[in-house]
Simulated scan of single mutants.
Amino acid sequence: MEYRYGLASPADVANMNGRAILQAIVDGRLPQPPISQILDFWLVEVGDGFAAFEGEPSPRLLNPMGSVHGGWPLTLIDSAAACAANSLLPAGTAYTTVETKGNFSRPIKPDTGRVRVEGRVVSHGRQIITAEARVLAKDGRVLAHGTSTLLVLSPAREQ
């Protein structure tokens, strides 16, 4: 699939809730974020409290030991968990990641092939949302997993 990259303008997302914004990215009506182009991963599915990305590990992501640097799967975990949380937010509400923790179960190498990361909300409070994510190989093996804590930011008030 051919993706386009960039940022949606405030006018493009006005009055859209988090899930609608994410679905518009999946559908190609809004661009994938620039980090997706740089790190070769894309939002591919969204639901209530759920988000999935797919990514291609490549030689340009390798650390000195010859495996994909841990920052890549951690970025996938943070992205999937955060988007799962965002899918539950009303229009005009923002969030930010407070903490993301990851565990690396198996090495990821370019020959691992396309991976899928699935994020799911675990707990949705008024101000704090926690979510978990798993990075999966094509055969379903867990390559990495982790959790994120997200802070819900109050909608901006007009002055």
Rank of each mutant, 00 (worst) to 15 (best):
G146Y: 01
R141L: 10
E99R: 01
K109R: 10
P107C: 12
T100H: 00
A85V: 00
P110I: 10
A137D: 06
R114W: 05
V13A: 14
R29L: 08
A24W: 04
Q37T: 08
A80I: 02
P10I: 14
D40T: 05
V152Q: 06
A144G: 01
Q32D: 05
K138S: 12
L43D: 08
G47A: 13
V121W: 00
I128N: 04
V152R: 10
G119F: 02
R19K: 14
F41D: 07
G28T: 03
D111F: 06
A80W: 02
P31Q: 12
E158R: 12
L88D: 04
F41R: 03
D48R: 04
T112W: 07
H124C: 15
D48H: 11
G6V: 05
L61I: 11
L74A: 02
F41G: 13
N15E: 12
F41P: 06
E132V: 04
G49M: 09
S36P: 05
A81L: 03
S79P: 07
R60K: 14
A8K: 09
W42D: 15
L136R: 07
I38G: 08
D78K: 00
A24K: 10
A24G: 15
F41H: 15
L39V: 06
S79K: 03
S9M: 11
R120F: 02
G49T: 07
H124M: 03
P57V: 09
G140C: 08
W42T: 13
V44G: 10
I35P: 02
V13M: 12
C83P: 07
R29Q: 13
R4D: 14
I35M: 11
L150K: 04
V13S: 03
F104S: 01
K101P: 05
V121A: 01
V68C: 05
P155Q: 11
A14Q: 15
E158V: 11
